[in-house]
């Protein structure tokens, strides 16, 4: 009896000993930075000595007109990105799914994957310098010029800068996301589709009443990933627009980066980080709840 107990204790101890390493790494590299960011958002942080100012950073942020503008910009860019990306990829997935010619469908699947082999930096520079270039020689300027429109500065005009960022990567289908929708469509039961066909349901009705409700899981995934990624991303701002012109493309993520590495205002940057975390968490929870209810209704 005592012997088995001793062995059990020893085994538990060994297990905990093995767990120390991953748990310690988690603590140091995952939890510590997040906790430090939350603490620093309430501090006037300086490496030589910080002091508590509680909500000072947050009130400074909300008194900052640039930050308020950047929140609105983020809202527009994230909703634009979610809408264009999801509608376009769903459309492509439906097209490929309904294609009778299997060989053509397969070939297209390969071709649409090619863009994901090119680094994102290259694509961004290509759009900046060639397609949406501000020159009169830019591809889009020539195209609109055919209809008599004067050349635009695109990324560098205050009026069009946000639209240009959303327009980048038009028609928004290159990459792997359409494959996830396609897989979702292929997992719909054959009998379901056959029954619809026998009842003479038109394609549009089938898409609305059968495909979309059964794809809600995939839509949920893309919505949540899209919100989390969209709130954090500032690559276009960093590579192309510098947040300009007149702060029309500045987003909180870019301000966070600037405040940390440009102005060493770590406290304010941490406050932005905490706010973004709160925004993402709220948006994610709402999206999750709404879609879960829709899924329940569809079932």
């Amino acid at each position: 009896m005592v012997k088995t107990q001793k062995r059990a204790v020893k085994e538990t101890l060994t297990a905990f000993a093995w767990l120390i390493l991953p748990a310690g790494l988690m603590l140091i590299f995952c939890l510590y930075p997040a906790a430090a960011a939350i603490l620093r958002s309430f501090m006037d942080y300086a490496p030589s000595g910080s002091r508590w100012i509680w909500f000072g950073n947050f009130s400074a942020l909300f008194n900052d007109a640039v930050f308020r503008k950047s929140l609105l910009n983020m809202l527009i860019l994230v909703s634009g990105g979610l809408l264009t990306g999801n509608v376009a990829t769903l459309f492509l997935a439906e097209c490929l799914f309904n294609m009778r010619n299997r060989k053509a469908s397969k070939a297209f699947r390969y071709l649409f994957l090619i863009p994901s082999l090119v680094p994102g930096m290259v694509t961004a520079l290509l759009w900046k310098n060639v397609i949406l270039s501000g020159d009169a020689d830019g591809l889009m300027n020539r195209l609109t010029g055919l209809f008599g429109a004067p050349p635009n500065a695109w990324y560098f005009s205050e009026r069009l800068s946000k639209a240009s960022i959303v327009l980048t990567n038009f028609p928004w289908v290159g990459g792997i996301s359409f494959l996830i929708y396609l897989a979702g469509l292929q997992s719909i039961r054959e009998s379901c589709l056959e029954a619809a066909e026998l009842d003479g349901v038109t394609v549009w009705k089938r898409v609305w009443h059968i495909d979309l409700p059964l794809l809600l899981g995939q839509i949920k995934y893309f919505l949540i990933i899209g919100i989390v990624g969209g709130v954090q991303v500032f690559d276009m701002q960093l590579i192309i627009t510098d947040g300009g012109p007149n702060y029309s493309t500045t987003v909180p993520g870019y301000l966070l980066y600037l405040k940390t590495y440009g102005y060493s205002a770590v406290g304010e940057a941490s406050a932005i980080g905490v706010l973004l975390f709160a925004v993402t968490f709220t948006a994610m929870t709402i999206a999750n709840k709404v879609l879960a209810r829709a899924q329940k209704d569809a079932a």
Binding site: L92, C95, L96, N98, M99, R100, N101, A104, F108, L111, F112, I114, P115, V118, V122, T123, L126, W127, V130, I131, F170, P171, V173, G174
Partner: peptide, 26 residues
């Protein structure tokens, strides 16, 4: 309908790949 579908997807594909054609050619 199927022909129209293939043409639509082919047009989409060309639009997606055109920038990368430019990249390679340039």
């Amino acid at each position: 309908k199927q022909t129209a579908l293939v043409i639509t997807v082919a047009a989409l594909c060309l639009t997606v790949l055109f920038p990368f054609w430019l990249l390679a050619v340039k």
